[in-house]
């Protein structure tokens, strides 16, 4: 049995990047190397991890979701208003929002529209709805949600525990179940899937609904951490989630995705910002350096592919 070294290095690239960042952060800021330290460092990563998984589900079928940031914001705004004041209606709105995501998937499939355009349009819809739900900053996250994200499980900070659980569940669902195979296959060769008698409509709707579910979880946890919301809360999650998913080994071509990689990628994106802050880098440079880290990792991956190609 031969080991595919290229595949191995490729798969461990996000993990290596994460380890390198952690080592650098611990060296710069030793007090981060504690339960409380890791908690502070990572607790904002939980919603980013969910948003990245949402993006990954859409990438699975070869689409790109430019609306996830607006959607997470909308969910957070619903959480601090309806979910707090009238939980039943709040839950109904969130369920309807997931159905809305599935409907977007259906629209893209049926009308054969470019997902990037539809989701970009949807980002304005979600933003508009967020402003309608919560016209000025405020609201109050339900106490149970705040308590939930402030849980202090013994021995391991919540953010790390959550990342492990989410990563494993995502891996099981998409990489190990028989349904996950069909969902990934749809990204690889939609015609083969149709010829095997599967409905691309249902597959796309399923993946978009999963993305919607992850988006709802991202909005809920984000509102739990911030305890209130505003209509600009998570707009930057769109690009963060794309960067995290791609960093984690997903590809724009569809079907090539990795839930564990996406979780690691989200953590890398979160930590990269902290790392740069610890370096006391001028904030004007931070976005650029974050982009440079992303390009570096992708270039490394491309290099691996090239080396393998010459073999």
């Amino acid at each position: 049995m031969t080991i595919d070294w290229r595949e191995l290095v490729r798969a461990s690239l996000p993990a290596l990047a994460l380890t390198a960042l952690l080592v650098a952060i611990f060296w710069l800021q030793p007090r981060a190397m504690s339960y409380q330290g890791l908690n502070l460092l990572l607790n904002l990563s939980i919603p980013i991890v969910f948003a990245t998984l949402a993006q990954m589900f859409v990438l699975t079928v070869g689409d790109l979701d430019l609306g996830i940031g607006g959607f997470v914001t909308f969910v957070a705004c619903v959480t601090v208003t309806w979910l707090a004041d009238a939980p039943l209606i709040g839950v109904l709105i969130l369920v309807a929002a997931i159905a809305g995501y599935a409907a977007v998937g259906a629209l893209i499939e049926l009308r054969n529209l470019p997902a990037i355009v539809v989701t970009l349009g949807m980002s304005f819809v979600w933003f508009g709805l967020a402003v309608i739900v919560l016209p000025s900053p405020g609201g109050r996250t339900p106490e149970w949600l705040i308590a939930a994200v402030r849980l202090r499980p013994p021995g391991i900070p919540l953010a790390i525990l959550a990342a492990i659980v989410i990563g494993l569940l995502g891996h099981l669902l998409l990489m190990r179940t028989s349904m996950g195979v069909v969902l990934r296959g749809a990204g690889g060769n939609p015609r083969a899937i149709t010829r095997a008698g599967w409905s691309m409509l249902r597959i796309r709707m399923t993946l978009y609904a999963l993305a919607g579910l992850m988006g709802v979880l991202a909005g809920l946890t984000l509102a739990g951490i911030t305890t209130s919301a505003d209509a600009n809360l998570a707009l930057r999650y769109t690009l963060l989630s794309i960067a995290g998913a791609i960093l984690g080994g997903s590809q724009f071509t569809g079907g090539r995705v990795s839930p564990i990689g996406a979780v690691l990628g989200a953590l890398v994106m979160t930590l990269a910002a902290s790392f740069l802050a610890f370096l006391r880098l001028n904030p004007d440079w931070q976005i650029g350096v974050q982009g440079a880290i992303l390009i570096l990792v992708l270039a490394l991956r491309a290099l691996l592919d090239r080396v393998a190609g010459e073999r």
Binding site: R184, G185, N189, A196, G254, R256
Partner: peptide
């Protein structure tokens, strides 16, 4: 039917491609 242009998903494994055409292959140990 085996079509002239192949109908396999390049991103999936041989076993996974087999699952694609068999709805019955599911559940534990699939």
């Amino acid at each position: 039917c085996v079509f002239q242009e192949l109908s396999l998903c390049p991103n999936l494994t041989v076993a996974e491609n087999t699952r694609i055409v068999h709805r019955q292959i599911k559940g534990r140990g699939w």
